[in-house]
Design a protein around this nucleic acid. Sequence first.
DNA 1: AGCGTTTGCTAACGGTGTTCACTAAAACGT
DNA 2: ACGTTTTAGTGAACACCGTTAGCAAACGCT
Lengths: 292, 292
Amino acid sequence: MFTKTCGRYDVNIVDEDHSARTGRLRRGVPQQMTKPQLGRGAGRPSRRERVREATLAEIKGIARDLLVEHGAAGVSLRAIAREMGMTAPGLYRYVSGIDSLLVLITADMFQELGDAVAAADASVPPEDTDLRILTSLRAFRTWATEHRAEFATMFGPRARLAPETDITPAVEAGRRFGATFYTLFDRLLSEERFVLPDGERITPELARELRAFADTCGFSAPHIPVEAIMVLSTCWVRLYGVVCMEVFEHLNFVMRDMEPLFESELQNMLTGLGVHYRPPEGSTPAAMSTPG
Amino acid sequence: MFTKTCGRYDVNIVDEDHSARTGRLRRGVPQQMTKPQLGRGAGRPSRRERVREATLAEIKGIARDLLVEHGAAGVSLRAIAREMGMTAPGLYRYVSGIDSLLVLITADMFQELGDAVAAADASVPPEDTDLRILTSLRAFRTWATEHRAEFATMFGPRARLAPETDITPAVEAGRRFGATFYTLFDRLLSEERFVLPDGERITPELARELRAFADTCGFSAPHIPVEAIMVLSTCWVRLYGVVCMEVFEHLNFVMRDMEPLFESELQNMLTGLGVHYRPPEGSTPAAMSTPG
DNA sequence: AGCGTTTGCTAACGGTGTTCACTAAAACGT
DNA sequence: ACGTTTTAGTGAACACCGTTAGCAAACGCT
């Protein structure tokens, strides 16, 4: 296309696909060769693998730090390398590029978010389904507001990633995270807390999509009716909506504190699900003073 | 202040704050000096101002093209300049940096989205409130799905912008866009289509936030009760949720077509508002065959 | 000890935002 | 018509980015 002469001296005829037309193309797994043949099956993972794992963890850790401190734009291989006392090209022995690194830490963050929600869920009596749901959903929001940058890369548009990037690790992690809620919803379902919506209002297309949704998410215990899946989807959409709106700060020029709106949405939503709403413990004590 | 010696040869001892610690700092309005003193008040805007306006428009136009074609990461001053046949520093005569350019085109896109919705609204009989609302909301989704990159920069996290960037132009445009819906909602309200929710469930905090919301948005005809504002917020959150979920592709590994879910949400939402839902014209003809 | 794998570095290419010093031209004042 | 001021745009430079190729040292196993 462009007959460019990149060499500083003269010719470099065989430059055609020098990996840079847009500057970032043709990224696969470049090095990180065959496979460590000292894995020894189930034996403990051979010193080399261990230190390798450790540096990979360090890379992801620093990437994470940069993300929270300087935002998504601040995560760069060179900055990470600098922080680690090595050079950027060295990182390519561990990661196949910045995009795949972002996918990796996204997966980690999904794991972490899932753990946070699960921990919150486990912190209340297991038989109190209502409280478990309340606590879990609030934990989701809390984690999101306390980890805005992370949430944005997890749930926002994948703006920074090249379109052809393989995002399956993140997707997998997201799926596992979703399961945290499916279990609770399933419990709610088996307790028959709410009446399912009119199934005749569900068009065949919607039913097909909902089935696909349930199947792919491992939420397809065969007894689950499409109506239930629709309720779940609706709830998820609403939760996603409030939290995104808060974290992306699309109302914060007009609404200082988004918690009341969140709580209100929660109340609306849960009431429809036959779950008894309770205001949160510490905050908004004024809510208590409102006479019924 | 900076006695720096940017010379190519030797010293530059006093370089400490050479504007680049992270590489992009200390951005204000660098040039575009005093003001064109040929404005002549109300007279038509002086050739110079006209061509200036034209090139600014060209800049924004090309920025927009790049956004659509190569995603947010593809919008760069150098690429724009290349496309225009000039050099990047020249653009600083028109824009104070890449960030502010992004804000500018965001504002333009809000305007455009608003126009699209307004046009759809105007395409149906003005007295048919139900249809107007249906059409407007569907127009919102349609525009979003047909302009994913734009929608992402408008409604997603402001990941690419430096935190200190002045985003008021975009915010203003967003406000004006919101007004498109307020009018419709106001009409719905005055027709008393739905019963307002129980006001006693609105905590004082929430009421205060809702009031602030209405005030800042110019949606504060004094008669409007907080309950109504809450309903509006809830609806907006739900709409935002579905559309974001679709455009950001967070379910598309599991759900091919998100339209059924959107329509279902629409139906849910509007039913609660006392608006009669009608399935869309062309698509999903199977929905017609479902007996009520 | 020898040998292959793994690791990390240097150099280099091409891309980005941004500033500064400068020229050419347009517009203005007289 | 001429000189002055204001503006548009350029080129060089700096600091940053992702990525590749080639090389040398370290490591681990036999």
